[in-house]
């Protein structure tokens, strides 16, 4: 391992802004997508149940 301290790890040899900017945004976007697909599936399931109960398209 090449990191002497936490500070060194965060600094990334002076490229911290770029490295953490890349990783941070990537995983934020992915987490957002996960939440969206799971919610969308649940919403579809709810709508399917409503549709069965009422028999209309709303």
């Amino acid at each position: 391992m090449q990191w002497g301290s936490v500070g060194e790890f965060i600094a990334m040899g002076g490229y911290g802004r770029y490295v953490w900017g890349a990783f941070g945004v990537t995983f934020a976007l992915m987490a957002g997508e996960v939440v969206t697909v799971v919610k969308a599936h649940r919403a579809s399931l709810r709508r399917a149940r409503l549709f069965t109960k009422r028999g209309d398209d709303r």
Partner: peptide, 17 residues
């Protein structure tokens, strides 16, 4: 999710519901 939306009229989705 897409399957549920588009197969809404199918009997199996109704059963799922």
């Amino acid at each position: 999710g897409i399957i549920l939306e588009r197969e809404r009229h199918a009997a199996w989705v109704a059963q799922l519901g």
